[in-house]
């Protein structure tokens, strides 16, 4: 277990920023940490990286406690804070050297690590420029390079792609995916396609509480408890949708049948079940029995957007 958060709470005065959350990150995993703004993502990451201290609960990174072995934990972790703060008056190499020194990289290793990071993050042309002159995309790479300068086992990235253009986002994302092969990565974001593109697993947090934790595919399946199937059928003239709907509802465990579209006798509608059972066979049999032309039949995947919105707005009150 690479990062183990148990019963973590954090208060700012009376306000509860993080409320008794527990989750774990396995070694070599890319974990997406999702939530609306102000949900507690940054607070949690700041506690893992020793910037804040927990009000209660414990966090262990590679088996070391963030409170009692804080310096050890900070050596193991590479951190890219939100907004990517940098010293704008330093040039790229100076800054990487400074970061390496502070991370305790041995003197003889520093030039080699700097070369490697400049290579990995594609900073070759920019290495002698002041950070203040760089574009946002390059600054983000400098931030990432500095976060990884000591070859940390755990990388904590707080909104690593915020403020980048679509091309830069793709670049940074693929960089993170490459890194994720050898490292444990915790990545916070509120950009959902990013999670789908990069993460193995997601933890969704809302108002300081964890509302979902699991691989994306599991979340999509489990959210409703039931399944959603979309059908498109051609029925003989004169049969209305209500008549079709009554027939469909005879199948056990059907919750709702709702029309999506109707054109030239072709009816497109969705069927939701109350339990996670596969009723596609029953639907097919029904069509054969009634002589309906089955044009389409597929299981609908709940998109991550739907999951996110449902989880983070349901529990809002």
């Amino acid at each position: 277990m690479s990062v183990l958060v148990s019963n973590l709470s954090k208060y700012y005065g009376d306000a509860k920023a993080v409320d008794d959350i527990s989750f774990e990150v396995h070694s070599g995993e890319i974990l997406g940490f999702l939530g609306p703004n102000g949900a507690g993502k940054t607070t949690t990451m700041r506690i893992i990286t020793s910037y804040h201290s927990p009000s209660s609960g414990t966090i262990k990174v590679e088996g070391r406690d963030v409170l009692t072995e804080s310096l050890e934990v900070r050596k193991l972790v590479g951190y890219l804070p939100e907004q990517n703060p940098l010293y704008l008056d330093m040039n790229v190499l100076e800054y990487l050297e400074y970061a390496a020194q502070l991370q305790g990289v041995t003197k003889t290793m520093i030039p080699q690590r700097m070369r490697e990071m400049v290579g990995v993050c594609g900073l070759g042309d920019m290495k002698h420029k002041d950070i203040g002159q760089l574009s946002k995309g390059y600054r983000q790479r400098v931030g990432l390079a500095a976060a990884m300068i000591h070859d940390p086992r755990v990388l904590i990235l707080d909104e690593p792609t915020s403020g980048l253009d679509p091309n830069q986002i793709v670049e940074i994302r693929s960089l993170i995916q490459d890194l994720g092969k050898q490292k444990t990565v915790v990545l916070s974001t509120h950009i959902l396609p990013e999670v789908q593109a990069t993460c193995d697993r997601v933890v969704i947090i809302n108002r300081g509480k964890i509302v979902a934790d699991g691989p994306i595919a599991d979340l999509q399946r489990n959210l409703h408890g039931g399944e959603k199937i979309v059908l498109e059928i051609e029925v003989p003239d004169g049969q209305s949708f209500d008549m079709v709907s009554v027939q469909v509802k005879n199948i056990p465990a059907i919750a709702t049948v709702s029309l999506i579209d109707e054109r030239n006798g072709v009816k497109r509608f969705s069927v939701e079940t109350t339990q996670a059972i596969d009723i596609r066979r029953d639907l097919f049999q029904l069509c054969v029995q009634k002589g309906w032309g089955l044009l389409e039949l597929h299981r609908e995947q709940t998109s991550l957007e739907d999951i996110f919105r449902q989880l983070t707005s349901n529990s809002a009150r």
Binding site: Y51, R74, P81, P85, L102, Q103
Partner: peptide, 14 residues
């Protein structure tokens, strides 16, 4: 102000 204190504090330095 610039947020770099967060970088500094989260390094293994007291």
């Amino acid at each position: 102000k610039s947020g770099t204190l967060e970088l500094l504090i989260t390094k293994p330095i007291t």
